[in-house]
Structure formats: structure tokens, C-alpha cells
Write a protein that binds this DNA or RNA. Structure first.
Lengths: 203, 203
DNA sequence: TGACTTTACTAAACAGTGTTCAGTAAATTT
DNA sequence: AAATTTACTGAACACTGTTTAGTAAAGTCA
């Protein structure tokens, strides 16, 4: 079965080549500004070929969303090694923001872009994101159990922290910080993260 | 000059008719999903007519962004009547979130949609938004002056509060709260806002 | 080996998009 | 009444996502 093995491998490689080209283009120009023809040209095939590997443009989007979710998980998961829940939570937050700043295109894909979120094919991606979110909430709960917080409402605490981090990153990613001088923006974000931690200590 | 008066009036009415139709369509289907032909059909004119009133689709977008900024200002400005700066700040935050929830299309237009933000024509809109942001920062400064906060870093405080509110609204607007049951989402947002206020009191 | 089937791919088309331009008919001015 | 200005449009251009019919090569079997 060596021939069919090779065929299968080639099929996967082609699929990946399409995704790689698409991701590069999306990062450069944004989802809507990239056409199937652009992607086809990048991989030096005809546009119709794309449709042999993906049902439509949305399916490419979903596949990339899954890749982005995996990159995010790999970026965040190392903090599971940190034993102290409060230190773990701090590092989780720091890395969440860091992920958004380092990969604005992927962050956009996961948390900002308007896309048909109800898709069934996208379930694996959804479950992946959900498990990371659960890890986050569990860490908050661990902080409560270790008496780092007086409040016992883990859900609301987690959500509140998330709101801040997401707001911070998405104002960056979508260029809504123009009232602050460019060279001050990063420092402001760092200060704000530190301020939120200080505030969280009083919860 | 009654004829040229009428002409000018008609020109303004036509412009407004285009904007009204465009805004309705954008709200229903989102910016990218609405075509110039859709707008033209809605006002019962040919697509080419649109271009007599707007340079291109982006200019329609900018004009709507200005309208959205005005709606937002009218939604927020009444809080200027509140004398106590802390109460004013609370009500400002409440209304900011309320604006986002009530007008997700407008909020999207102002703070989320990817658009050429460097546009010069868009200056009036930008100045309008800037003045509201300044009012917000001034209110934070007033809280500091009235000893509601120990911290004196008005800029970082304002930015931190904004991050939370923007994060909260944009997770809503872009449908990223699917891990929470629909009927719990609003309450969670309310609880989170209350939690942030409690935290802010310790600043 | 030669005939048959399956696979991988593409050219061309369809209906849509933003935008431009030449042309027209009506309103206004002279 | 003639000339000009205004408001508008039909048709075109180059683009978009997507489908379909057809082709040439690769693999299979006699």
C-alpha cells in the first residue's frame, strides 16, 4: 500500500500548503481582502483546485481557526507547570496578552473576526478553545481554594479578567489606541495589566 | 436663491437617504456583506448615483462612523450633569456598555471593524470620539482629585476601565460568549461590571 | 505490454462585487 | 426659444466565490 500511502501524504501536504498560503495572506491583508484566486496563485495552482481540498472559503477559515487555537494552547499550556495558582494565573494572563500581541492575525481569527460560529465542522476547534477556557476557570477556582481571593464567584472573576485582557488585546489588534502616542502604547498596556493584578488581589 | 436652496436641501436629503439605507443594511448583514447595488436598490436608484454623493464605499463607512460617534456622544453626555465624579464615572461606564449592547452595529463600526483609520476625511469623527474620551479621562482625574482613588495615574486607570468595558461589549457583539448559556450572559456582564467597580474602589 | 479506470487538475463560465464613463433627459439660466 | 447645467443611468471593466465539463496523467489489471 505504498502508492496510496504516498497519495495520502501528498494530499495532506497540498492541504497544508493551501492553509499556509492562506494564513500568510490573511495575516498580511485580512480575511475579506484575500481571494481564493490569491491563494491559488500563491501555491501556483488553479482556483478550482482549492475546491478539491476545501468545500468553500469558510472551511479554509475554520481550518485556520483550529490551527490558531492549537498555537494558542501551546503558548498558554506551559503555565500548568506552575504550582502556585496565583502565580499560574498571573503567568496565564501575561501569556494570553503576549499571544495576542505576537500573533494579531491568529487572535483576530479566534476572537474578533465575524464568522459563522455555529458551524458543526468546527467542533474540534471549539472543544480545544473550551478546554483552555476551562483550565483558566479552574486556575481561578484554585486561587479561591488557596484563599487568594475572598470572593467565591470563580466564574465572574474569570470572566472579568478575560474581559480586560481581551479588551486590551483587541484595542491593539484593531488599532483603536490612536489617542495614545505609539511609543507609549505598550507601556500603558503593561501598566494596565499590573494595575488589574493589584485590583484582583483585593477580590 | 430659493431654487438653489431647494437643490441643496434635496442633495442633503439624498445623502441622508443613502446613509439611512446603508446603516440599516449594515446592521442587518454587516459591512462586507452589503454591496453598493444593495444600497442603490434600497433607495430605488442606480448604483452609479451613489457615486455622485460618495467617493466610494469607504466614504459611506466614514460618514456612518461619524453618525455612530454622535449617537454614542448623545448616549453618554447626559452624565455630565452628575456632580459627584465617582457617580459620574459609574454612570458613564454603565451607559458605555449599554450603548454597545443596544447598538451593536454602531459599536462595531466605531471600535471593532477593520477600516482604514488613517483617513483624513474622517477627522471630524475622530475629534468627536477624542472629546468623549477626554471627558472620560477628566472624570477619572476628578475622582482622583476628590480622593476616590489613592493612585494618581489617571491615564492608566481610564485605560484599564476602558479595556474591561470594551472587552465585555466586544465579546458580546462578536459572539464569543458561547461557553456561557445565553440566559446567563447578561447577568454575568452585570456582575462583572459591578465587580470591576468594587475593584476600582481599591485603586 | 496494452486497455481500462481512477485521480488530479484546469479552462471557462455564472452571478455577484466596486467603480467608471459616455450619454440622456430634464431643470435652470440666458 | 436656445444654451447650459444638473441629476441620473446603462453598460462596461476588472475583480470576487463557486461550479462544471473536460483533459491528461497515474495506477490497475489482462
Amino acid at each position: 500500500m505504498s502508492i496510496s500511502d504516498r497519495k495520502e501524504r501528498e494530499k495532506k501536504e497540498m492541504r497544508q500548503a493551501i492553509l499556509d498560503a492562506a494564513l500568510n495572506l490573511f495575516r498580511e491583508k485580512g480575511y475579506d481582502a484575500v481571494s481564493i484566486r490569491n491563494i491559488a496563485e500563491a501555491i501556483e495552482y488553479s482556483p478550482a483546485t482549492i475546491y478539491l481540498y476545501f468545500k468553500d472559503k469558510n472551511e479554509i477559515f475554520f481550518a485556520l481557526q483550529f490551527e490558531a487555537a492549537a498555537v494558542k494552547r501551546d503558548h498558554l499550556l506551559p503555565v500548568a507547570q506552575i504550582e502556585d495558582p496565583w502565580q499560574r494565573l498571573i503567568e496565564f494572563g501575561r501569556r494570553y496578552i503576549d499571544f495576542g500581541m505576537k500573533h494579531p492575525g491568529l487572535y483576530d481569527l479566534l476572537f474578533i473576526i465575524r464568522a459563522p460560529m455555529e458551524s458543526v465542522e468546527n467542533q474540534e476547534c471549539w472543544l480545544l478553545g473550551l478546554s483552555v477556557h476551562k483550565f483558566f476557570e479552574d486556575t481561578v477556582q484554585a486561587c479561591i481554594d488557596a484563599r487568594y481571593f475572598k470572593s467565591t464567584d470563580a466564574k465572574t472573576i474569570a470572566y472579568t479578567l478575560w474581559c480586560h485582557a481581551h479588551g486590551l488585546v483587541s484595542l491593539f489588534v484593531r488599532d483603536r489606541m490612536r489617542m495614545y502616542p505609539p511609543e507609549e502604547r505598550e507601556e500603558l498596556a503593561r501598566k494596565s495589566f499590573a494595575m488589574l493584578l493589584k485590583m484582583a488581589e483585593t477580590l
